[in-house]
């Protein structure tokens, strides 16, 4: 019964995540940017823009310029998260390639780094007057959700172990549209419930910052307006009756 509920939950969550994100990304991609608005100094070539974007995604360059504390906590949290997610790949592939085996120990401790980063970010929402002012309940809830996922994960890893082989079988089953038996450890159920919730809110929340960054005109435009005429389709329609 539990296995069925969780299987259905994950299928639904995956559908919401994929469809929601695809719809959003399509919207961003289809909405024209009528004017050239890169925040300058900006790269003058497409290659330069790729590098700028890479620095933003990997190093959080602008955030680093802006605020060292937020950068420290935010960057730690995100990079640790990538490691943890990488480590989690083992639940979804049958044979573990060598590099995935290699990141396993790092991923384990990255969980603590994630927690530390999240704690720092959350503390700022209470302690810094300006950030307290701009925080809504949803901002706290998002952090609570992540803390819950990470906390329960660490619990399983270090305190209340679960049968990870069975988890793997369950996950591989889901990917083949089969329902296998999920261990009924409460901590695991909390972990997976949290993950499903995260997937569902992703396309309707501020988590859209992940795809959003790539579509931000102030970061992804090439600084070449004098060399290349930039014209949005709707603006081109205004051109008709000109010069006449």
């Amino acid at each position: 019964m539990l296995s069925v509920i969780y299987a259905l939950l994950f299928w639904a969550a995956t559908a919401v995540l994929v469809a929601g994100l695809a719809a959003r990304i399509r919207k961003y991609a289809r909405t024209p940017a009528p004017l050239k608005i890169p925040t300058t100094p900006a790269p003058t070539t497409q290659g330069g823009v790729v590098l700028r974007m890479l620095r933003e995604v990997v190093l959080f360059e602008s955030l680093f310029k802006s605020n060292k504390w937020i950068w420290l906590f935010g960057w730690t949290f995100h990079m640790a998260m990538w490691l943890v997610l990488l480590r989690h790949l083992r639940y979804f592939v049958v044979d573990i390639p060598w590099w995935l085996a290699f990141v396993q120990p790092f991923g384990t401790y990255a969980g603590f780094a994630m927690l530390a980063g999240l704690a720092g970010l959350w503390a700022r929402r209470f302690l810094v007057e300006r950030i307290r002012y701009i925080s809504s309940p949803s901002d706290h809830l998002m952090l609570a959700l992540l803390v819950m996922i990470v906390g329960s994960g660490l619990m399983m890893r270090f305190v209340a172990h679960t049968d990870i082989v069975a988890v793997k079988v369950f996950m591989l089953g889901l990917m083949r549209l089969r329902i296998e038996t999920l261990p009924s450890d409460p901590v695991l159920l909390v972990h997976l419930g949290g993950v499903a919730a995260l997937m569902i809110v992703f396309p309707v929340s501020k988590l859209l910052h992940a795809p959003g960054l790539f579509f931000s005109p102030s970061r992804n435009q090439v600084d070449n307006p004098r060399e290349q005429r930039h014209l949005a389709p709707w603006a081109a329609k205004l051109e008709g009756a000109r010069d006449g």
Binding site: R24, K27, Y28, T31, P32, A33, P34, I37, S62, L63, S66, N67, I70, G74, L121, R124, V128, R130, I131, I134, S135, S136, D139, K206, L208, H209, G212, L213, F215, S216, P217, S218, A232, W234
Partner: peptide, 20 residues
């Protein structure tokens, strides 16, 4: 619909507070 910046900026802010 006409301005990507407007749409993306409305969605993307995480309230990190870096700009405050």
């Amino acid at each position: 619909e006409k301005n990507r910046a407007f749409q993306v900026y409305l969605d993307t802010c995480v309230k990190c507070g870096a700009c405050t």
